[in-house]
Design a protein around this nucleic acid. Structure first.
Length: 642
RNA sequence: GCCGUUGUAGCUCAGUGGUAGAGCACUUCCUUGGUAAGGAAGAGGUCGUGAGUUCAAUUCUCAUCAACGGCUCCA
């Protein structure tokens, strides 16, 4: 007998060799039908795998993350079986579960797969699923496995085997499909009731663009059609908040072939938002002791040789222009320009920390395939600033920047983000990262400690640092699930030295400053793209391009509408009159759809009483008020950025 | 940059080897209506661009540009 400990602490005895599924059955048949896998002593196992020792057991169902990922992993195998039955000579690479579904990478030997094939594959998968094929686990010695795949001529699986040792190698078979796989899997294919193959994509083998490109098929499966439908419905809803769709509908920005890829034309509505954001940034930075500067969009080649950017980023800068025998580059970052401003006047410790800010325009030649609406563009306006400080001042300055982030996030109600401490990758020192191993470790520890002391939760990721130092990135997700860095706070221990920057310290010695690069509001492009999705286009009043729309019931009240308009304009409120000869219902509908925060309905009653009837977008009629009263209220809302 | 898909009116989309259609938006007229679509008429497109096949191409082929879904990349 073996002792099984359940999550609630209960301990029960079972026959040696019982599987998690056997144990589930002994509890209830209903439970057994839902068990997809099991956590045995913290390791995820097949529910059907016999247990020979005392164990802590957790039965995993669709409601557990591990249950879902096992389900999707098994679905990938099911898809592979379907692919193999419809295409000859396919070689498979890996087929893992992902956040919403799974994919399988395969080499189709030059054959192409089409959307129609996906439908055929879905049908085939459904057919195979109905057979309730059991996923059978089999251990195999390495030599035997190597022989098996060598005979098959499967270089991909042989490659996988290279990194595996004897005793770690297992195969799974369901129906006619056998795959090298560490598992675990769901008991049988019958659990998979609803199948949708979502897209076909190319994917480099092992994620390296120098390698051959494999065909990747993405799919998602569910234990019921209803759940799949709900998921697809949710995707449709997400698309409605896509900033590219909203940006067009609300007249925020446009792009044009004659201008160029990734180059944003900000329309009047978008420009209002830009100006409000800059106003916020300027107020905030002034209060935090920053000074403002303005720098040109281009600079000579030598600047970027000094900064060290050119060897790392030449490919992603626009190619240089030659004038009078000099090469000029469009700037891809503002820091070198700012360093020159720091260097223009002699600095002493009394000048430190020296903080300079600019909404800097930068140009980056992003690869065409990476451009994405407002989120990834080739011309961007950065909420940039550089803080030059001594080592002693660093912690306080870095923390102040973090505090500024949090202050902003509170204003915008941003709460779904992850702070990421982005570190260097020691394997790429001298290649992607400045070759200063000691300084890297010291600076990373410095940043780590600031975060810990400030009690700010963060994750650490190797290989995401800037070439000149570690950073704190604020990661967010677009509505379609892509991850982006919204804001960034970076330490730079390299450029101070490269630019020979210094200040005279208290001991009358020259000292190289540490530099903080920070962009709490990221770039206008990405930040507004994010805000569009975050607010689903319903901007708070202070940001809304049109804050108030005045809706006269009929033409008879047009004069009064003008009076109301003038009162609002006097208070610097962005207001317009809807002077079309439409019915009030139509005017309201159009204004609601345009997501204007306030509508003022005025007719005979309002005119006679000097009032306005207030309607809030999405909330309906709020009743009538005096004009002055409304102006005072909305002015306060705007001033406080509520 | 790579793999795949798409490209028709301002927007969303239908359609065809014989030079095009709907809804919304727009213009004009009628209507002056109290909290999410009043009615009528009209205007608007060399079907992304270039070449090829064809008596004939928006439709087929190729190239190119752009957008989209991934991969790679992101100072």
């Amino acid at each position: 007998m073996i002792k099984i400990t359940f999550p609630d602490g209960a301990v029960r005895e079972y026959e040696n060799g019982s599987s998690a599924l056997d144990i589930a059955k002994s509890i209830s048949e209903g439970l057994a039908k839902k068990v997809l896998a099991a956590s045995v002593n913290g390791e995820v196992w097949d529910a059907t795998r016999p247990i020979y020792n005392d164990a802590i057991l957790k039965l995993l169902t669709w409601n557990d993350a591990e249950g879902k990922s096992t389900f999707w992993h098994s679905s990938a195998h099911l898809m592979a079986e379907a692919v193999e039955s419809l295409f000859d000579g396919v070689k498979f690479w890996v087929g893992p579960p992902v956040e919403n579904g799974f994919y399988y990478d395969m080499d189709l030997g030059g054959k192409q797969i089409t959307e129609d094939d996906l439908r055929k594959l879905e049908t085939k998968m459904a057919e195979l699923a109905k057979k309730n094929e059991v996923y059978v686990r089999k251990e195999m010695p390495k030599a035997e496995a190597v022989k098996y795949f060598a005979e098959k001529g499967d270089e991909y699986k042989l490659d996988l085997l290279q990194n595996l040792k004897d005793g770690e190698i297992t195969f799974y078979t369901q129906g006619n499909f056998t795959d090298l796989c560490r598992g675990p899997h769901i008991p049988n294919t019958g659990f998979i009731k609803a199948i949708k193959l979502t897209n076909i994509a190319g994917a480099y083998w092992k994620g390296d663009e120098k390698n051959k490109q494999l065909t990747r098929i993405y799919g998602v499966t569910y234990p019921s059609q209803k759940e799949l439908d709900e998921y697809l419905q949710m995707l449709e809803e997400a698309k409605k908040r896509d900033h590219r769709k909203l940006g067009k509908e609300l007249g925020i920005y446009t792009m044009n072939d004659d201008i160029g890829q990734g180059l944003i034309l900000w329309m009047p509505n978008g420009t209002v938002i830009i100006e409000e954001l800059e106003k916020l940034a300027k107020e905030t930075e002034l209060a935090a002791g920053y000074k403002r500067v303005v720098t040109p969009h281009i600079a000579k080649e030598n600047l970027y040789i000094t900064s060290g950017h050119l060897p790392y980023y030449a490919d992603s800068m626009f190619p240089p222009m030659e004038m009078d025998g000099e090469k000029y580059y469009l700037k891809a970052m503002n820091c070198p320009h700012h360093h020159k401003i720091f260097d223009a006047e002699l600095k002493s410790y009394r000048d430190m920390p020296y903080r300079i800010a600019e909404y800097g325009t930068c140009y980056r030649y992003e690869q065409s395939g990476e451009l994405f609406g407002l989120m990834r563009v080739r011309c961007l306006h950065m909420n940039d600033a550089h803080i030059y400080c001594s080592k002693e001042q660093f912690a306080a300055e870095f923390k102040a920047v973090n505090d500024m982030y949090l202050k902003y996030f509170k204003i915008f109600g941003i709460d779904k983000y992850v702070m990421r401490l982005s570190l260097h990758d020691p394997a790429k020192l001298g290649e992607k990262y400045i070759n200063e191993p000691e300084l890297w470790l010291q600076t990373e520890e410095l940043v780590r400690n600031v975060m810990k002391e400030a009690n700010i939760p963060f994750v650490e990721v190797k290989g995401e640092g800037a070439f000149y130092g570690p950073k704190i990135d604020v990661q967010i997700w677009s509505t379609i699930g892509r991850e982006f860095t919204l804001a960034t706070n970076q330490v730079d221990f390299a450029q101070g030295r490269r630019f020979k920057l210094s200040f005279t310290n208290k001991n009358n010695e020259p000292e190289i400053p540490l530099i903080i690069h920070r962009a709490p509001l990221g770039t206008h492009e990405r930040f507004i793209g994010f805000l569009l999705e975050h607010y689903a286009g319903k901007f708070p009043t202070w940001l809304a391009p049109v804050q108030v729309k005045i809706l006269p019931i009929s033409d008879k009240f047009m004069d009064y509408a003008q009076t109301v308009l003038q009162s609002l304009k006097k208070a610097d409120i962005r207001a317009e009159v809807d002077d079309r000869s439409e019915k009030i219902g139509k005017k309201i509908r159009d204004t609601e759809l345009a997501k204007v925060p306030y509508m003022l309905v005025i007719g005979e009653k309002e005119m006679n009483e000097g009032k306005v009837s207030i309607r809030r977008q999405g909330k309906g009629d709020l009743g009538a008020k005096n004009i002055d009263e409304f102006v005072a209220e909305i002015s306060n809302e705007i001033k406080e950025r509520i």
